[in-house]
Amino acid sequence: MSATSTERTLSPTAAESSGSAASTLDLAGVSRWYGNVVAVNDVTMRLGPGVTGLLGPNGAGKTTLLHMMAGFLAPSRGAVTLDGAPTWRNPGVYRRLGLVSEREAVHTFLTAQEFVLASAKLHRLPDPEAATRRAIALVEMESAQDRRIGTYSKGMRQRTRVAAALVHDPQVLLLDEPFNGMDPRQRLHMMGLLHSLGDAGRTILFSSHILEEVEQVSGTVQVMVAGRLAASGDFRTIRRLMTNRPHVFAVRSTDDRALAVALIAEPSVTGVELDRNGLTVRAGDYGAFTRALPKVALARGIRVRQLLPADESLESVFSYLVEA
């Protein structure tokens, strides 16, 4: 990759390929650091047609990675290329790339129609009015399109931004936390929209810190934890990995020691620890353990005072993935 390449060098090929063949976004050994802090650490991935979810807890580097993909941040090391062309310092890539950033920044003084039309004109589309109508219809904003964006709800602003990013029918669409602030109906509609774009051969990547969102939209996931790509591939495989991991419970009862003895005999239990605060029980099978515990306690005449899943936070799920 030549670091000095300007917009002029790559634009002709970019113009010709727009709207035809599917695009591939490539990340090769991409790292980004700020001073001593490494935000993204040696990430290599290839994104092709279809919907991909970028999953990870807050602060994992998802936004930094998306900004590098979208050409808004230079990688400290490695290269981000869209069909072979670098995205950094190369505005030509925006013919094939659309971005919906997380920051809810819109020109509140414009109406949705004016805003999307301005995007269409900036893209120099042959028929900006028609492209605007199509994009606004895609996000179902026709009824409110002539109101100022300042009067919209968060979800409506988000849809307007998606319409503006889709107005030139890009091959690649990047969305940073697109479901934030949407009500369930809007969320469902947006998921449907992303699905249909992916089915139509577009390369769609959206980031999220919510497992269920990713589960509903995408078959492929890239999981980021602490700047690294922790897992990538089919969602079901990763989900199975997540559900089969040992579950940890904090248990308190009238007789912790007796309960510990009884529990270790259960096949679903893989380990028990006894300390002043009660028992820490490790179970291989979530369902079997939670069914077995009341029976065991009842049989021994022990009363369970407390049963808490100890590590159900998303971070622990992710950190388990890193170790796996």
């Binding site: 505005p91 920051r103 020109h107």
Partner: peptide, 12 residues
């Protein structure tokens, strides 16, 4: 942050 809307266009 609205500058991003203008910058995500293929304009020199």
């Amino acid at each position: 942050g609205t500058v991003v809307h203008i910058l995500t266009k293929p304009l020199p």
